[in-house]
């Protein structure tokens, strides 16, 4: 259940940003969760709703964008998106690809009450 420690890090970040911008509350937290980031979105949501309660995020909603894999093929130059956890180019089957997105967990946006 590393989702709990990930949420702790997320809430810590939100609190620091809220403080930095003199906010009284955080109303919405937008995050991006890659399909190959290694977290389970439902567990993350559950952890967020548990841990947010005693801080500035207490009333915040968590908006999760599930990010598919974005592959850039070095062989046929195609950029493709896919929900399968496969890094081969879906167009030409080449293994010479670069994963451009879909492996990270990012805090994207905060809506604050200031």
């Amino acid at each position: 259940m590393h989702e709990y420690s990930i949420v702790m890090a997320l809430i810590e970040q939100c609190e620091a940003l809220a403080k930095q911008h003199q906010a009284i509350a955080v109303e919405r937290v937008d995050i991006k969760v890659g399909i190959l980031s290694g977290v389970e979105p439902s567990l993350l949501a559950q952890a967020f709703n548990t841990f947010k309660l005693d801080g500035i995020c207490a009333k915040a909603s968590l908006d999760m964008h599930i990010q598919p894999l974005v592959l850039q093929c070095n062989h046929c130059n195609t950029r493709s998106e896919q929900m399968h956890r496969v890094v081969l180019c879906p167009d030409c089957n080449s293994a010479d690809t670069r994963v451009v997105d879909g492996e990270d967990m990012m805090l994207m946006q905060l809506e604050m009450d200031t």
Binding site: I6, H21, D104, M105, L107, Q109, L110, E111, M112, D113
Partner: peptide
């Protein structure tokens, strides 16, 4: 770079674009 943008629809709400790795501290 954190750019603080005032959300035009809501006067007292502010939307902050961040783009920050959640595990950046680690």
């Amino acid at each position: 770079d954190h750019s603080l943008k005032t959300n035009p629809q809501l006067n007292d709400k502010k939307t902050l674009s961040v783009i920050h790795k959640i595990l950046s501290k680690n």
